[in-house]
């Protein structure tokens, strides 16, 4: 059996931690799932050594560990009523009574260029962290972990309609945050 390089594993650790934080937003939980992932990797060292892309392989394990945590949470009683209300208010504030934009979205200048800018990604991560927890969780499952809407509804034990509503709000809130903190600055 080939030896596993502890340094190589350590290098992946900080990446995995940031990945887990984006989804769980709890440093202790993130630390736990990353630890479990690394233990699983060490226990299956021949599998690890055979990987041409160890990071992809590790993220595969990590996703399962994250899902376990989210599944457990979905079964716990929800304490997020107030959170949901805040979000409603925020979204309602974006539109007038007649359903038109309170302030119509302006053109974003060269968004593709933003993706080349390291500072943009900091803002993007910050905006994700500012999203209400329920929205952030569903949004990251959908876009970051690329799960299907059906899978997300199932994992979070919510109806499909509710899932669409949550995802939509997440996108509205994220758009608003990016507009305020990045693209709006150029205007």
């Amino acid at each position: 059996m080939s030896a596993i390089d502890p340094e190589a594993l350590q290098q992946q650790r900080s990446y995995l931690l940031r990945y887990a934080m984006l989804q769980l937003r709890d440093p202790h939980l993130a630390e736990d799932v990353v630890q479990e992932t690394l233990v699983a990797a060490i226990e299956n060292r021949s599998g690890f050594a055979a990987q041409s892309q160890p990071r992809t392989w590790l993220v595969g394990i990590l996703k399962h560990k994250i899902m376990d945590v989210l599944r457990k949470r979905a079964r716990e009683p929800q304490l997020s009523v107030a959170e949901g209300e805040d979000e409603n208010e925020l979204v309602d504030a974006l539109f007038r009574q007649n359903g038109r934009w309170a302030s119509p979205p302006q053109n974003w200048n060269e968004p593709e260029q933003a993706m080349e800018n390291a500072h943009f990604w900091e803002v993007f991560e910050q905006c994700n962290r500012r999203m209400p927890l329920n929205s952030a969780r569903a949004f990251m499952m959908r876009e970051f972990m690329e799960m299907s809407t059906d899978e997300i509804c199932h994992e979070l034990s919510i109806s499909t309609t509710n899932c669409w509503v949550i995802l939509h709000r997440a996108r509205l809130v994220l758009r608003e945050c990016l507009d305020l903190n990045w693209f709006g600055n150029a205007r």
Binding site: V59, W101, P104, W121, E125, R175
Partner: peptide, 26 residues
Amino acid sequence: MCRGCRNFEKQLAFIRKAARELPRKL
């Protein structure tokens, strides 16, 4: 008929693209 929504449409496409790019930017 609605420029605001046309901008929103483009921005949604960008948000999806960026979110799926994020794992490579961490």
